[in-house]
Simulated assay, not measured.
Amino acid sequence: MSESHALAPVERTPTQRDTHLSEDAWALILEATPATTRRAYRDDWNRFTRWCATQQRTPLPATAETLAQYATSLAMAEKAPATIGRAMAAIAKAHEAAGAGPLDRRGVKDVLRGYRKRYAKAGRSVKRAPALTLTALRAMIATLDPDTLTGVRDRAVIVLGFAMGARRSELAALDLTDLEPHAEGIQVTVRLSKTDKDGAGRIVAVPYGSNLATCPVRAVEQWRTALAHHGRESGPLFVRIDRHGRLGHVATGKGDPDGRITGEAVAAIIRRVAIAAGLDAAQAFSGHSLRRGFATAAYAAPDADLVRIARHGGWKEGSAALFGYLEEVDRWRKNPAAGIGL
């Protein structure tokens, strides 16, 4: 072969090749993943590559043995099983983006199976946000001042989120243009959600409520009127309010420039109002409490329709999470030990 056709040597070390993900690859990950998840995934991937560097293992592509050993290291650090599962999901997403092929997780599954048993024997359990009942919802709304911007916004966040069975990320992502008036209430377009991988979107019909204080349609209209009064007729539906009462104000270098609240802010609002209402386990309430509360309240209704409940809240068909919520209702309503003569 002539010298002019000789292949030039690659000067990148194996470690650099194994751990590097291009900005284009990360951009694809970010586009396909909700904001809160994408930050967690990137942090998980960075932790994994640092661990591999200390253990002299190859992170990309990672072998089944490397994955199992990493899962074991997290278990020995007493991380929750869900945290370990998310770390594996982040590693899998990085491999997918880099075109490195699927992961062999057989060893990880065995490690997690054994760790879950040890976790349960130690008296630990998976922390779940408590479902928000209608009684608790009314108590929370009663603490809000309807004459303040914060009170009006927080009421709209809570009752709309409950009525939609929405994820906190879905609430935070709503724009004013996603709401369309209807004779029966409002139609809300959810453009992106956790289970909507292709971005097809869904329309959620939110009817008028029978209770003025907790009617989601009236709560949202009051908030939209407040926004319009401050010159906001487009952009995000829910925005930050600073201690001076300014809407969407952004400190230098912090937050989205449009003032949109985050999913974490939704959870903080719910927890803060739950504490103000003096609810039991108020510190444990989160954005997911709205979603669980909707599912259990809707299922407890006399004309409950599982298919409609799932479609309304954007659950996948046969969702284990949804059935878990509904079991909480059936545990007593359809208890097989009741009525057998004990």
Score class of each variant (00 low, 15 high):
residue 291 R to P: 06
residue 113 R to D: 15
residue 98 A to H: 05
residue 90 A to Q: 03
residue 243 R to E: 14
residue 264 E to T: 15
residue 17 R to Y: 09
residue 123 G to L: 03
residue 289 S to H: 04
residue 185 G to C: 06
residue 74 L to D: 06
residue 45 W to N: 03
residue 28 L to S: 13
residue 13 T to M: 10
residue 264 E to L: 13
residue 100 A to G: 15
residue 264 E to Q: 15
residue 66 T to Y: 02
residue 281 A to P: 00
residue 254 K to I: 12
residue 104 D to H: 10
residue 110 D to N: 14
residue 113 R to T: 13
residue 73 S to D: 08
residue 123 G to P: 04
residue 4 S to L: 14
residue 294 F to C: 03
residue 104 D to A: 11
residue 251 A to T: 10
residue 252 T to M: 11
residue 54 T to C: 12
residue 301 A to Q: 11
residue 18 D to Q: 14
residue 252 T to I: 05
residue 178 D to T: 06
residue 342 L to R: 15
residue 231 G to S: 05
residue 256 D to Y: 05
residue 194 K to H: 04
residue 317 E to D: 14
residue 243 R to S: 11
residue 116 R to V: 11
residue 242 D to Y: 03
residue 334 K to N: 14
residue 106 R to N: 12
residue 263 G to S: 07
residue 309 I to S: 02
residue 35 A to K: 13
residue 34 P to S: 11
residue 334 K to Y: 13
residue 78 E to T: 10
residue 235 G to P: 05
residue 95 H to C: 08
residue 253 G to D: 00
residue 311 R to N: 13
residue 326 L to S: 04
residue 49 T to Y: 10
residue 222 Q to R: 14
residue 199 G to I: 04
residue 127 K to T: 11
residue 19 T to A: 13
residue 263 G to T: 04
residue 117 K to M: 12
residue 52 C to R: 03
residue 61 P to D: 06
residue 6 A to N: 10
residue 207 P to A: 10
residue 96 E to R: 13
residue 16 Q to K: 11
residue 85 G to F: 08
residue 13 T to Q: 08
residue 250 V to A: 15
residue 205 A to L: 10
residue 202 R to M: 01
residue 252 T to H: 13
residue 143 T to I: 06
residue 335 N to D: 09
residue 11 E to I: 15
residue 16 Q to Y: 12
residue 215 C to S: 07
residue 220 V to Q: 11
residue 296 T to H: 01
residue 340 I to P: 12
residue 261 I to H: 01
residue 129 A to F: 06
residue 259 G to K: 05
residue 282 A to M: 06
residue 90 A to L: 04
residue 110 D to M: 13
residue 318 G to Y: 05
residue 19 T to N: 08
residue 69 Q to S: 13
residue 47 R to T: 12
residue 214 T to M: 02
residue 102 P to K: 01
residue 332 W to E: 15
residue 277 A to H: 10
residue 328 E to P: 00
residue 212 L to V: 15
residue 222 Q to K: 12
residue 182 H to Y: 00
residue 259 G to Q: 06
residue 320 A to Y: 07
residue 56 Q to L: 14
residue 271 R to M: 06
residue 156 A to D: 10
residue 225 T to E: 08
residue 14 P to K: 02
residue 186 I to W: 01
residue 182 H to I: 00
residue 323 F to C: 03
residue 280 D to Y: 02
residue 101 G to K: 02
residue 330 D to F: 02
residue 106 R to D: 12
residue 269 I to C: 02
residue 292 R to D: 07
residue 13 T to V: 11
residue 69 Q to I: 00
residue 271 R to V: 03
residue 20 H to K: 00
residue 211 N to C: 09
residue 311 R to F: 00
residue 222 Q to S: 15
residue 102 P to F: 07
residue 195 T to D: 03
residue 305 D to C: 03
residue 5 H to T: 15
residue 198 D to M: 13
residue 311 R to K: 14
residue 151 G to V: 09
residue 171 L to A: 07
residue 62 A to S: 08
residue 252 T to Y: 09
residue 277 A to Q: 09
residue 130 P to I: 02
residue 175 D to R: 10
residue 313 G to C: 04
residue 48 F to R: 09
residue 47 R to H: 13
residue 323 F to I: 11
residue 267 A to L: 05
residue 17 R to D: 11
residue 300 A to Y: 00
residue 335 N to R: 00
residue 127 K to N: 08
residue 163 A to C: 08
residue 192 L to C: 11
residue 314 G to K: 03
residue 146 P to K: 07
residue 52 C to W: 07
